[in-house]
């Protein structure tokens, strides 16, 4: 599927990514119009994560909205940049030694599908925050949206990998790499929601806060038992 000549963004391709992931995945493997797919996927990734970031930052409001909107695309793209060589190597070792273009385009369209789902989750998340959701609930809702987006991206990736030996091991390995790298990059660029009880906005925080998983677990505890003593100011 070629982009419309002269167009910057191919909406039809985005529709295909959502409706027919297997076809798009096959196009990626066959290196069919990979450059156009990569370009459109990158645009989708930036736009989707930017708007989702803005919704997340709206919990604190003000400058935090813009900070979060700027940081989430960086997190997404940085994760993809770091994971790209690993995906290439893992696919090659598990009997799929495709070209770099094929692997990258498959990864990018998976990222585009991820971002499109985030884009779909943006209005509900914004509404939830606008209705006064707590910090922990907002954090968990955003994490849930991330989880859904991840599943959507995974379905496209799984179709793209095709049947063959080592498929499950490869998928598990790719998921682990993506989760580890994504967690670290997002942790490095926090905060996104802001810090409850703190009025001023900071671009990055350097406090030792125990790690991403620890913070998510604390949020679950606070949502389940709001009376539980917290460790925030």
């Amino acid at each position: 599927m070629k982009s419309f000549e002269g167009s910057v963004f191919d909406v039809t391709l985005m529709s295909r990514i959502l409706r027919a992931p297997a076809d798009v995945a096959a196009d990626c493997r066959d290196d069919r119009d990979a450059s156009a797919m990569a370009r459109n996927a990158l645009i989708a990734i930036v736009v989707g994560s930017l708007l989702f970031g803005a919704a997340v930052g709206s919990w604190h409001g003000g400058a935090q909205t813009f900070f979060a909107a700027g940081k989430l695309p960086i997190v997404m793209l940085a994760t993809l940049v770091v994971c790209a060589p690993a995906f290439y190597a893992v696919s090659a070792v598990f009997h799929r030694p495709w070209s770099a273009r094929s692997v990258l385009s498959l990864m990018l369209v998976s990222g585009a599908r991820f971002s499109l789902v985030l884009l779909a989750a943006t209005p509900p998340l914004w509404l939830l925050i606008n209705l006064g959701a707590s910090y922990d609930l907002s954090k968990l809702a955003a994490s849930f949206a991330y989880g859904l987006a991840g599943l959507a991206a995974l379905t496209l990736l799984v179709r793209g990998l095709g049947d063959g030996p080592g498929k499950r091991s490869m998928i598990a390995l790719m998921m682990a790499i993506f989760l580890l790298v994504g967690a670290q990059t997002s942790w490095m660029l926090r905060p996104y929601l802001g810090t409850p009880g703190v009025q001023h906005v900071v671009l990055f925080t350097r406090e030792r806060e125990g790690g991403l998983v620890y913070q998510l677990w604390k949020s679950v505890e606070h949502v389940v038992d709001p009376a539980r003593p917290g460790d925030r100011p």
Binding site: D31, R32, D33, S35, A38, L42, L77, S99, R101, L104
Partner: peptide, 16 residues
């Protein structure tokens, strides 16, 4: 560059 350069600099394969 890790994500974009291969699409510009590498030669597309002839599967198309």
């Amino acid at each position: 560059w890790p994500l974009w350069a291969p699409f510009v600099l590498a030669t597309p394969r002839t599967r198309e």
